[in-house]
Write a protein that binds this DNA or RNA. Sequence first.
DNA 1: CCACGGAACACAAGCGGTTACATGAAAGGT
DNA 2: ACCTTTCATGTAACCGCTTGTGTTCCGTGG
Lengths: 337, 337
Amino acid sequence: MAITIKDVADAAGVSTATVSRALRGLPNVDSGTRERIQRIAAELDYVISPSASRLASGRTGSIAVITPYIARWFFSTVLSGVESVLQNAGMDLLLMSVSTPDGQQHRLPPAPRLRRRVDGVLVIALPPHDQQLREVLALNMPTSLIGVTLEGIPSVTIDDVLAGQIATQHLINLGHTRIGVITGAPVEEPFTADHDRHRGFQQAMNAAGLDVDSALEAYGFFTIAGGEQAMTALLTQRNPPTAVFAMSDEMAFGAMKAMRSHGLQPGRDISLVGVDGHDMSEFLDLTTVVQPVQDLGRIAAEALVGQLQSSGGEVEADSIILPTQLLVRGSTSPIKG
Amino acid sequence: MAITIKDVADAAGVSTATVSRALRGLPNVDSGTRERIQRIAAELDYVISPSASRLASGRTGSIAVITPYIARWFFSTVLSGVESVLQNAGMDLLLMSVSTPDGQQHRLPPAPRLRRRVDGVLVIALPPHDQQLREVLALNMPTSLIGVTLEGIPSVTIDDVLAGQIATQHLINLGHTRIGVITGAPVEEPFTADHDRHRGFQQAMNAAGLDVDSALEAYGFFTIAGGEQAMTALLTQRNPPTAVFAMSDEMAFGAMKAMRSHGLQPGRDISLVGVDGHDMSEFLDLTTVVQPVQDLGRIAAEALVGQLQSSGGEVEADSIILPTQLLVRGSTSPIKG
DNA sequence: CCACGGAACACAAGCGGTTACATGAAAGGT
DNA sequence: ACCTTTCATGTAACCGCTTGTGTTCCGTGG
């Protein structure tokens, strides 16, 4: 078998308790002894058994990340932020997707698989009402949400209302008055990104004294294909919009495709603004409200790790809001006189 | 504390050994007893302690996925395939990235963190010579490679030489003779995807009796920005190519951008073919050699899980090759007469 | 009618650490 | 010189499950 703490202890002429303390940097270990133990452990190529450590200590040293999608840009980018933090913190990252890669069917819910297995949970952009999310929260373990807010649960998000406002205001400033919007799903639940961005849209419109024409609203399901369909729907209106606010860059991409199919050019014929700061948005010259996606993950992970380490007393659940920034590119321009 | 197997045993009036066997579906348990135990366990809302189970059994029930990037399309897509399989197999997926999200610096190598922690390892597209990969392999635990082949190690890949050939042949068939190529990195190491694709390129060129002009070769580092620079370099040649083979779709996207900057239109002025079947390739009307990326991950994961479960005797390391398919779209067209 | 084999289950020894508590020695205070 | 701290370390009781080795009870063949 692999060598154990006992072997190290014997080789160092101390007890396993001392080895355990020495290796974990606990106080009350003579610095000489500590160094000797560290050296011997290294020589012996000793690696601690996580299972044993976990069993004895009750801490698992791992965090689960629950996400609806793995392969989509937003999610994988958040994930990369999370991963870098957890790696540095020496924590294991257990990845669990809530839906199949096809994005269709539900899976066996993650909640049961969490118990006794991780110290904390990071949930990426699961809508507040989501059954799976509910089950996870019911576990009552340290949890942080990313991209959603929920009363009483720590979270890291952007101000989606503001993002919607900024995007819309930009279009308004350019002189547009017939502004269409491509949102996510038909059933808008409160406190979701698209709901909030839509509110921002409305606020900006109202503030400018503009009508929100429900005929200029289409659903894009946050996918490229969906965005294309939505834009097509908008373009085939009797009176199409002169500008469109797409609630995600990917939907905006789809919208661009639809525009091209109709012989229209983004920025020249119709203005288009997205949200995200997707890698490809620069490439496609899309004006967008950039959100610090990687930081979303990074900061949420840091908060959670911090909470776990300083695990004395309940930390009050604070909801961190990260800034967004309008990035003006070629897809938006002043309305033609 | 949470309830343990002992509690279940007591409630069922049997020993913990029987509960353990019953719950894991082992033989030599009366079906009546088994059902009773299952019912009681469910009633008590019992969940096994993975740590204890792992410590006692020696199996961790988890697999590590090591990848250079998390947020890039290819990698996150492979990952999603892996995840779905592992989830179904009831295995934990430990995610470790080898580089920081910025793609720059190296991290603490993953190898030490693997020992005693996982039953197997899945490595995504780390070049064969890579130090980190070497260290992982030196651990000598069940490992499968994705996107690379290495003598003696199970792997799942596409035939990169063939992919390069197909892409190039397509351009040749369209009548092109001055064909440029955007490859990955300057230092080409054998057995990497770009090396092999380049070989396929050369083979096709040679077979058609065409010259490979080294001036028509540029490096794109598999990124959009890199592809853009590479294409710019190609376009500013005294005698630019009429067609370009980009070894990844993302580099092709960058190339498209460069073309547009030069007032050129893909498919009309210059033909462009990529490799991947990236989500956005359809959107951008890019001809590409599609590889089944998600399946790469899925199949590798299945193989590894299979090997771990039937863990009797060494399985011979077979290298699985998945098919690719040329998808002709608007970015390629016959050379102008 | 008895020995024998197998099924169903109980016992108990680990698995490899962690940690509360005990111990002893050195240091500090008066 | 004596008592109290403080520090370094040892002792040993878990942590919660798995599994090899019994033990008991039955059915069956001779």
